[in-house]
Every structure is written in structure tokens, then in C-alpha cells.
Write a protein that binds this DNA or RNA. Structure first.
Length: 812
DNA sequence: ATAGGGTTAG
């Protein structure tokens, strides 16, 4: 240490002893060496470090352009800390150094620091270039308004805007351009500035036209025509001019026009090819995209990573696994070593494989990658989440070196969709605690969590937050809200969301139809479906599942059958097993068991568990023992551990008093170690959820509930309520039976709600299993006695009890 | 020292 210090001081003395001209030649030597470092290259940083180290040890203090050059190289090699360190020590940094730092901080996504340096630059030192850098800084950080404000300041302070200024300010404008933006005025301003013939400025102007054209309320063809006119009249077109107009058409969905411009290019650049391909991909013209990919190869143009990623994502989204695999093989051939496949291409490959259902292959790609970035991690996380492999997804989430909003969003929606609502909500608040601003998709995930939990109050709070965050026109959040309100029992609120959404898609329609259907508004649900067709929204597989369920709930056999038949005939969707299961459910509920059996026999595939389940539950309702027993036997073969089959079968026996058979089924269940999912019901009071089990003794206030139920019972009997003991599924004395009925979890939850909720408020109770027949009857009387609406959701649907009646019309 | 185009994660 001592020696090093001594050496440095000798060196410093040596430098001090040099004459002025010697110092100049040393400086020239350093300058020449730094000139060798070309910015952005990986070696330039280490070379610059060497030269810098030499300066320090020899006691040479860099100033002026040498210092600026050092700072610039550090900035461009993203060693901003070193650059800032050097910059801070300059007593009066010149405008070049300041501008370098401003540009570097902006590029690093830190416009605040850039602004700070800009602000501390005295007006007398500033020039047009530093304004340009700051304007670009804002626009790179998506703050178009700040850029425009600075442009005004610039003119106020009498700085002359140049080509760069106009190009940058137009780019900033394109960020915030909408149908209100007056392109004509801008056009004039550019012409007046004298930069109207500069290629880069015209390109930027075209970009603004393009952006305005893609605003949903704009007359896009007019604006695009104006953009094309600008393009056609340009004196000098560069590569960018071509791609700008091509992507302009592409983004406005006019692929033919884009293709026409593309075909008119003499020398087609890789970028233009890529623009066309990604355009086809984003507008779902997959065959065209693949065709371009082939043409590119035939024209001898080398594909690059942009081409690969676009084409791979085309295959992924269209489910073209074999095409995707061929492209993968092609890439491996072209790149020789799999190590040479770029990061983004590998990321696209992960997505290709999982979207085609090959999660483990996706994992192989992920594991074999030499380097991974956040996109890779998010892609593999999505793979596991999407496959419902939540445990593995959880461990990826925990192990990730870095997370962003998307990471959290994927995990939250994954949890919500797989029934882990509580965990989803926990993650949502944790995300906010970590200082991340949730996007609308994250909100959608949290709202879906509330739907799974039937947590209405929490859901309402999220709705309010959503509006405060400015996401009230979000499609995904709106769709989640429809489902949440419907699943929480407030179908009116669901409808209100649907009506106030600025844009809706087939998911929104499906959610709304399902909402009405579940709540027993069968006719209205079908009206919505017809309206959807009228508005030219194509129904999908989910739509038909929903419509068939609706018909089944409402007993609309004829309509249901017609819709089923129209699926393939009118919309080219071949019914899957799930569709057949709903058709059979529809027929069975209506008592048409033999017709349902005919369907099973003529189906194009072997009946699986969903089909037999539909048959069994239909037979239980209508007491069709033979078919019911057959269905149960098939289900025992297919899924011996499923509790539902045993329950339905024993219920069927109990209904006809065959208690010996009931006992046999129960014994079979015990022998096979099958556990019945315990029935439970819950009700939300003042934002907390109260859960009740049958014969509950755990809830702290359960005694008050039993007392209240007894009191209610007296009044109900006066109106004619008689406990229907056929719903007690064990053989016991009739008094015991009445007692057993009175302790059902749904009765406890409803009574608790009546006691605790504000007078007159609707009680909303949720049950994990099907509601019991006696409870259903009791709630009708209860709604009359207390003159309040009672809503109960069971596993599948809602019952609205009001003034002695139920919305299901006793068809359930 | 400052500008503008094509890609991948829901």
C-alpha cells in the first residue's frame, strides 16, 4: 500500500515536471486510445478502464473532451455509477458532459435524475442539443406531456428548434396522439419550421398520422391516406420511411395496403419483412405469415431473431405445434449451435411449447438456456400456471431472481383461477406493499380471487380502487367484475358493469350470459345470446357451454337442443364431451332419461366421467334407479376416489327408503377410504367471512343462531312450513330427523346473516355443495316471515328467495 | 452530446 502510494506520487511528480507541450502529447495519446473504444461494444468498457487506470496511476487528470469521452463510454456500457462519479467531480461540467449524462439517465429509465441535471444547467450554458436530449428522454419514458411542456419552455427561452427537435417532439406527440390531435396543424407547424423536407422529420410526422389513425374513434382510412400522401411526396425516402408506412398500415389492420407498399420496395430490408410478418401474426393471418417466412428464405434474405420470434408466436397462438416444431428445427439448423439461439428466440420457444400443451418440453428449453431474463422466467411461470400446476408455479415464483408486474399478475390470476382466492388476494396486497403499481390484469386477478371466495365487500373495494387507478375502461378487469358480481350474488351489478364497459368481447358476453343463467334469468340470458349474434360477435366453445347450462337450469329443452345442433352447422364448432355432458344434463333434468341415453349411444366418442355424472344426477332427481346404478358403476370404475358418486347413489337409495343399500354404499366408501367433502356455508358480514359446518359448535355465536332459528321456525310453521324429513339421508327416528334438518350449514349461515346484517339488507349465503331440499323450502317461508330477500349459491347456481318464492321456480 | 422502424412473457 505504502509502495503504491509512493509510486503514484513519483508519477505525479513526473507529470508535474513535464512541460506544457509534453502534457499535450500525453493527452493526445489518451484521446487516441479512447477513440479506439467504440461505444456499446463489450470490450470498450474494459479498454476504457485500462486507459482510465493508467491516467490515475500516472497522475494525469482528464479534462475537457477526454473526460467527456470517458463519461460517454461508461454511460454506454451501462456503468452509469462510474460515469456519475466522474461527472460529480467536475466543478463546471460543460454542456457536452451534461448532455451525455442527461441522455444516459433517460435511456436507463431514470428521467428524474436526467431532469435534475438539466435543471441545474444554467440558461447561459444550455444549447438546442441538451433540450433535444431531454425531450427525447421524456418521450423514451412515455411522458409525452412533459416533452411538450419542455418544448414550450425551449421556445420561450429563445432556443431555435432543429431537425432533431422536431423529430423528437413528433415522437412525443405520437405517444399521446388520439383522434383529437390536429394532424393538419402539426403538419403546418413542421412546414413553417423549414424542416418539412427533412426525411427524419417527415417520417416522424407520418408516425403521428399513423398513431392517430389507430385511435378507436378516428376515421383511420382518411388519416392513413394522408400519411400515404406524405410518404408518396417525399423527395428522399430512407429505410425508415418504408417501414414506418408499412407498420402504419399493419397497425391499422390494413394488411393489403401494407403488402402493396412492401411489394413496391426495390430492396426489401429485413426490417420490412419482419414488419409484414409480425403484422400478419398480430392480425391472425397465420398462413400468410408462414408464407412470408418461406418467401424470405427463398429470396436469400437471412432471418434474424425478430423474424423467428414473430413466426414462433404465430404458431403458438394458432396452436400449430407441428409448424412450430419445424421452425424450431430450422432455427437449430441455421444457428449451428443451440448456444447461438438468441435469448428472445428461446423465450418464444418456451411459449410455443407450453401453449401447445407441452409444459415439460418448455421446461427443457428453459433449463438448457445459457442465459435467462425476466421474460424467460415469466414465460415458464405462465406455463405452469396455465397447466394448473400451481405447486411448481409457486416454487418458480419464489426462486425467481427478479419479478415485475407481469410476474405478480400471472401468479395472482393463476391462484385465483385454481381456487386459491385467499392466496391470490394476499399476493395482490403484497405486490402493492413492494411498491409495484398493479396493472389492470393484476386487478382482474384479484377480482377473480374475490369471485372464487364470494367476497363481495372486498370485491367492491377493488372495484373502487380500479376506478381510482384509471382502469375503469379495461376489458379484462371489466370481464372479471362481471363474473365477480355474478358469483357474489349481485347480478344487477354484473349487468351494470357490462352495460358501462366501453368495449366488450366474447368473454364479456359469455360472462354476462352465464351470470343471468346462474341466477335463473334463463329467458334474459338467451336474449343476450341472440343480441351477441346480432352484433356479429362470434360465439366460441365457452359460449355454448354457458348457453347449454342456462337452458338446463331453466328447463328450456327445445331451445337447448336447437342451440346444440347449431354449434357445428352454423359456427363450425364441433361439440366436445363437455358440451355433450351439458346436453345430457339438460335432458335428464327434464326427465327425458331415455332420450339422454340415446345421445350417449350415438355420441362420436366413448362416454367419460362428465357424461355419467350428468346421467347419475338426473336419475337421482327423477328416481330412475336402473340407469342411475349403471352410471354410478361406470363412475366407480373411472374415478373410484370421487366422493360425489357415493353421495348421489346413497341419496338415491335413501329417497326410496332402501336403507340397507344406503348402508352398503357408505361401507363401500369407508372401505375404499373415500372421504366426503364436508358441506359448509358462509356469509360475509362487515367484510369478514363467517363459515358454518353442519351441526356447528365452533362459531362463537352459534348458540344465538340456534335460538333465532327456533323462533323463526315457530312463525314459519304458522304459515304452513313442514320440515321434509325425506331429505335426511340417514335412517333415524323422525324427531331426530327434524333436529338434523335444523342444523344444516346453510340454515345456520342464513340465520346468522339475518341476525347480523342491517335490517332489510339482502342475505347472501354460499354453500360448497348442493343446497338441501328442505332448506330450499324453509328459505321460501323464511323470506316471507322476515320480509327480506335471501340469496343462496350452491356449487352451480343461485336461488333468490323473495316473498315465499324462489327464482328457480323449483326446477333445480 | 441529441432523433425516427421490426421480437418474446398475461
Amino acid at each position: 500500500m505504502k509502495n503504491a502510494a509512493a509510486a503514484a506520487s513519483t508519477s505525479i511528480n513526473l507529470i508535474k515536471s513535464l512541460r506544457e507541450s509534453d502534457i499535450r502529447s500525453v493527452a493526445n495519446c489518451y484521446a487516441a486510445q479512447l477513440q479506439l473504444c467504440c461505444p456499446h461494444s463489450s470490450t470498450s468498457y474494459s479498454l476504457a478502464r485500462c486507459v482510465h487506470a493508467h491516467m490515475i496511476t500516472s497522475g494525469f487528470r482528464p479534462r475537457g473532451h477526454i473526460l467527456n469521452r470517458l463519461i460517454d463510454i461508461y454511460c454506454k456500457s451501462s456503468y452509469l455509477v462510474y460515469a456519475h462519479h466522474l461527472f460529480d467531480k467536475i466543478p463546471e461540467p460543460d454542456i457536452v458532459a451534461r448532455t451525455t449524462m442527461i441522455a444516459a439517465y433517460s435511456a436507463a429509465g431514470n428521467p428524474e435524475l436526467a431532469r435534475e441535471i438539466f435543471r441545474r444547467t444554467p440558461l447561459s450554458v444550455r444549447d438546442t442539443v441538451c433540450y433535444n436530449a431531454m425531450i427525447t428522454g421524456y418521450s423514451h419514458n412515455n411522458d409525452g406531456h412533459a416533452a411538450i411542456e419542455l418544448f414550450r419552455d425551449m421556445k420561450r427561452d429563445d432556443f431555435e428548434p432543429d431537425n432533431y427537435t422536431f423529430t423528437s417532439i413528433l415522437a412525443a406527440l405520437a405517444l399521446i396522439a388520439d383522434q383529437e390531435t390536429h394532424c393538419q396543424q402539426l403538419h403546418c407547424a413542421v412546414a413553417k419550421s423549414g424542416t418539412g423536407l427533412v426525411t427524419s422529420v417527415v417520417n416522424a410526422l407520418i408516425s403521428v398520422y399513423v398513431k392517430c389513425a389507430s385511435s378507436p374513434l378516428a376515421s383511420s382510412s382518411l388519416l392513413m391516406a394522408a400519411a400515404k400522401k406524405l410518404f408518396d411526396e417525399m423527395r428522399v425516402r430512407d429505410e425508415l420511411s418504408w417501414t414506418t408506412i408499412i407498420t402504419g398500415y399493419v397497425r391499422n389492420g390494413d394488411l393489403d395496403a401494407a403488402r402493396q407498399v412492401f411489394d413496391g420496395m426495390n430492396e426489401k430490408l429485413v426490417v420490412a419483412w419482419n414488419a409484414m410478418i409480425s403484422g400478419y401474426v398480430h392480425n391472425c393471418f397465420v398462413p400468410e405469415a408462414l408464407e412470408m417466412f418461406r418467401k424470405m428464405h427463398l429470396s436469400g434474405i437471412k432471418h434474424d431473431e425478430f423474424t423467428y420470434t414473430s413466426v414462433l408466436s404465430a404458431c403458438a397462438n394458432a396452436g400449430l405445434f407441428l409448424h412450430g416444431k419445424q421452425v424450431h428445427a430450422y432455427i437449430l439448423r441455421m444457428e449451428k449451435l443451440s448456444q447461438d439461439v438468441s435469448l428472445s428466440v428461446n423465450n418464444a420457444l418456451i411459449t410455443l411449447y407450453w401453449k401447445c400443451g407441452k409444459v415439460d418440453e418448455a421446461r427443457l428449453i428453459f433449463s438448457s438456456m445459457p442465459t435467462r431474463d425476466l421474460v424467460s422466467w415469466n414465460a415458464i411461470l405462465s406455463a405452469y400456471v396455465n397447466a394448473g400446476r400451481i405447486n411448481e408455479a409457486r416454487s418458480f415464483f419464489t426462486e425467481m431472481p427478479e419479478r415485475n408486474v407481469l410476474t405478480w399478475t400471472v401468479m395472482i390470476s393463476g391462484l385465483a383461477q385454481n381456487g386459491f382466492g385467499e392466496e391470490g388476494l394476499k399476493l395482490f396486497s403484497q405486490m402493492k406493499l413492494e411498491g409495484l403499481k398493479p396493472c389492470d390484469y393484476a386487478f382482474a386477478g384479484a377480482i377473480t380471487s374475490c369471485a372464487a371466495l364470494a367476497a363481495l365487500e372486498h370485491g367492491r373495494q377493488l372495484h373502487a380502487q380500479l376506478v381510482r387507478f384509471g382502469f375503469d375502461s379495461s376489458l379484462s378487469a371489466g370481464n372479471a367484475l362481471i363474473t365477480m358480481y355474478a358469483r357474489c350474488g349481485v347480478v344487477e351489478a354484473a349487468h351494470c358493469v357490462f352495460l358501462t364497459m366501453p368495449y366488450v368481447d366474447s368473454v364479456s358476453w359469455n360472462a354476462m350470459i352465464a351470470a343471468l343463467g346462474q341466477h335463473g334469468h334463463g329467458a334474459q340470458a338467451l336474449e343476450h345470446f341472440e343480441q351477441m349474434l346480432k352484433e356479429n360477435i362470434l360465439p366460441d366453445r365457452i359460449t355454448f357451454l354457458t348457453v347449454l347450462s342456462t337452458c338446463s337450469h331453466a328447463g328450456l329443452v327445445k331451445q337447448g337442443r336447437n342451440y346444440f345442433n347449431s354449434m357445428h352447422k352454423l359456427y363450425g364448432i364441433s361439440p366436445g364431451e363437455d358440451h355433450y355432458a351439458r346436453l345430457i344434463d339438460l335432458l335428464c333434468r327434464a326427465g327425458k332419461i331415455s332420450e339422454a341415453k340415446d345421445v350417449v349411444q350415438t355420441m362420436p366418442f366413448e362416454p367419460g366421467a362428465p357424461i355419467w355424472e350428468a346421467l347419475l344426477s338426473g336419475c337421482r332427481i327423477h328416481g330412475n334407479m336402473d340407469v342411475g346404478i349403471e352410471a354410478a358403476e361406470r363412475l366407480f370404475e373411472l374415478m373410484p376416489q370421487h366422493d360425489g358418486t357415493y353421495i348421489l347413489l346413497s341419496n338415491m337409495y335413501a329417497n326410496v327408503g332402501r336403507w340397507d343399500s344406503v348402508a352398503k354404499v357408505r361401507k363401500l366408501m369407508r372401505d375404499r377410504g373415500v372421504k366426503k367433502e364436508p358441506g359448509c356455508s358462509w356469509v360475509e358480514v362487515e367484510s369478514s367471512v363467517h363459515v358454518f359446518l353442519v351441526d356447528d359448535t365452533v362459531h362463537p355465536e352459534v348458540q344465538a343462531v340456534y335460538n333465532y332459528l327456533e323462533e323463526l321456525g315457530l312463525k314459519m310453521r304458522k304459515l304452513g312450513y313442514v320440515p321434509d324429513t325425506k331429505y335426511v339421508l340417514h335412517d333415524m327416528e323422525s324427531e331426530q330427523k327434524e333436529y338434523a334438518l335444523s342444523t344444516h350449514s346453510e340454515k345456520l349461515a342464513v340465520a346468522f346473516g339475518l341476525l347480523k346484517l342491517p335490517l332489510g339488507a339482502t342475505v347472501r349465503v354460499f354453500k360448497n355443495l348442493r343446497i338441501c331440499g328442505d332448506c330450499h323450502n324453509a328459505f321460501k317461508f323464511m323470506s316471507k316471515v322476515v320480509a327480506r330477500e335471501i340469496i343462496v349459491r350452491d356449487g352451480k347456481r343461485f336461488h333468490h328467495f323473495r316473498n315465499g318464492d324462489c327464482s328457480c321456480g323449483n326446477y333445480w
